[in-house]
Computed example of a mutant assay.
Amino acid sequence: MTETLTATAAGRLFSRPAAVASCVAFVLIGMVQAVYGPAVPGLREEFGLSPSAAGLGLSLHFTGGVVGVLAFNSIHARISNSRLLSASYALMALGALGVAVAPNWPLALLAAFVGGLGFGGVDYGLNQLFAVGFGNRSTAMLNVLNAHFGIGAVLGPAVIAALGPENYPYAFGACALLSAVLMCCTRGIGTAEPAPASAAAPANGQRLLSRVLVGFLALYILNVAVEAGVGGWEPTHLETVGFTAAVAASATSVYWLMMTVGRFLVVPLTLRYTPELILTVCAAGMTACLLLALIPGAAPYAYAGVGLFIAPVFPTGLPWLNRALPHARRAGAWVISASMIGGVAAPPLLGKGIELSGIRAVPVLLTVLSAASLLATVWLKRATPTAPQD
């Protein structure tokens, strides 16, 4: 308990063991999200499902995630940070165990939703606390935290590949066990958030505050749309322009890997440059890479560049949001939930655009979204106070 109080008194919410446990938690939520896809053949065999019915598992997981973000945000002021995270881990453990042992598909879907509630609580809780809990190092620590999500997203499919899809219950069971262990690792988390840094009131009052929040919502939705769009349509585009299925699949894996690498690489930069400058460079970089993807021979390398540039956007934008809207406590929850909704809605909407314009237009459609993200970033940079640099 002394260590917890010391961390909080120093302006930090996390003791070192608690910070390490939080990174492990992001490995966990990355694994949980990533195992649903590779487990589909096993789920279909176990419950006699069609492909679309099997895909409902991940949909219910994301639905639970959105509800979890908003629900835990609504009660956060009435419970401690450690209790919020403990409850989230408990729901994840219950959900993962439920998917592993469910005797029928409706109960498995209910379990996926319950696990999603916990997923949303962990995603919201740790992102929000890391955004304010490490002082000037918060942006760097957020990138480290979210990089561990990528590690989990790589490990999840690897576990299913090693076990075989028919043994998916063991993968979900392992996730449940790790969730239960993490419930015991929340003692080093402070009980209150540090007071937000003072910021000048917007010149146009509440109206400008609302416009800034809308700007951040647009920024996150557009970036997640690009992220999910590349992940979902890169393989098809690469095969269409002449690459083999094996090369296309490998290139897509490299794209996701670059997202993890990019978050680690940006850490030292966050200690020298403002979040708004980093995000402006990232938006310009991924737009340029998507234009480069119009050249068939360069497309795999261009998509890898998109992964590198888009990697810092989600974690680096949260400290900027908290500084721009220090008194809007729900702002973080809204942008996190919006990002989840964007991840669900973007692939089918892009699919409709591709139906009208053809597969070769994938880079064009994604460039439009990325350019809109760049415009939103530039507008927010002008509309919010500039961060001081030490």
Rank of each mutant, 00 (worst) to 15 (best):
T186V: 14
V132I: 12
A288Y: 11
L257D: 09
G57T: 14
A372W: 00
F134Q: 05
A387M: 13
R272P: 00
G297Y: 10
A197E: 15
P17L: 08
A171R: 04
G231D: 03
T236N: 04
L277R: 15
A93L: 10
Y303P: 03
K381Y: 12
V154C: 01
M183H: 05
A131C: 11
L85H: 01
S22N: 09
G242Y: 03
Q128C: 10
S138W: 02
P385D: 07
Y168W: 02
S373H: 09
I336M: 12
P165L: 00
L91Y: 06
L91P: 06
V214I: 12
G65M: 15
A18D: 00
V99A: 08
A200T: 14
W256V: 02
A100G: 13
V226C: 12
P315C: 09
A10N: 11
R78E: 03
L209V: 14
F130Q: 03
G285V: 00
V344L: 15
V306Y: 12
G262L: 04
A87D: 01
T384A: 08
A245K: 06
P165E: 02
A108F: 04
Y124D: 09
W233A: 02
G205W: 11
F149C: 05
N204C: 13
S74Q: 11
Y89D: 03
L94P: 12
L369Y: 04
G68F: 05
L269D: 09
P319S: 13
T270G: 03
A192T: 13
A100V: 13
T270M: 02
A131R: 00
A93N: 10
A153T: 11
I278H: 00
Q206P: 08
T191A: 08
G297M: 10
E239H: 00
Y301V: 12
P103I: 13
A197W: 08
I354R: 08
L43C: 00
C289A: 15
G118Y: 01
Q389P: 02
P202G: 12
L117E: 04
N146G: 14
W233D: 02
A293M: 07
F134K: 04
V230N: 08
S253W: 05
P326I: 08
A10H: 07
N81P: 01
M92T: 12
T236R: 04
P319K: 09
V226M: 10
A199V: 13
A102I: 07
